[in-house]
């Protein structure tokens, strides 16, 4: 299962979302997801300035034998990406919730955050099956 910090929200596609003080949101993949993928060797990041819809592909995380799309949990404009992942993709494995963040969005509609699971729901969802 891995760590599931209570203060974050979670998409069914295993992205976590943190709302920052300035109203922007930061997105990464969960500990559960990084563990399932194994050693991450490459991250394909979105471009700053891209406008993404909720559920739209934002990038790709690759391990040696798997590749997984990252989806935008809510709609918004990409305002920053974690460039450090280009050289150190293993930061997602080592530190999925802080150093391994992937991109930041300026939300178009903060109400969309209500549609995303809380930590306990995500935990239950992960436990319920082979996700």
């Amino acid at each position: 299962m891995g760590m599931i910090p209570a203060e974050l929200k979670y998409a069914k596609t295993h992205e976590w979302v943190r709302t920052e003080d300035d109203g922007t949101v930061t997105v990464g993949i969960t500990d559960h997801a990084q563990h399932a993928l194994g050693d991450i060797v490459y991250v394909d990041l979105p471009e700053v300035g891209d406008t993404l819809k909720a559920g739209q592909e934002a990038g790709v995380v690759e391990s040696v034998k798997a590749a997984s799309d990252i989806y935008a949990p809510i709609s918004g404009e990409v305002i920053a990406v974690n460039d450090e992942l280009a050289d150190n993709p293993e930061m997602i494995n080592n530190d999925p919730y802080t150093g391994g963040w992937i991109f930041k969005l300026k939300p178009l509609d903060v109400n969309e955050l209500d549609d995303i699971q809380d930590s306990d729901v995500y935990k239950e969802w992960c436990e319920s099956g082979d996700h």
Partner: peptide, 13 residues
């Protein structure tokens, strides 16, 4: 075999 199990993470990184 001629080699033991190979480091395929290193092969990518």
């Amino acid at each position: 075999l001629p080699v033991k199990r190979l480091d395929d993470v290193k092969a990518v990184k």
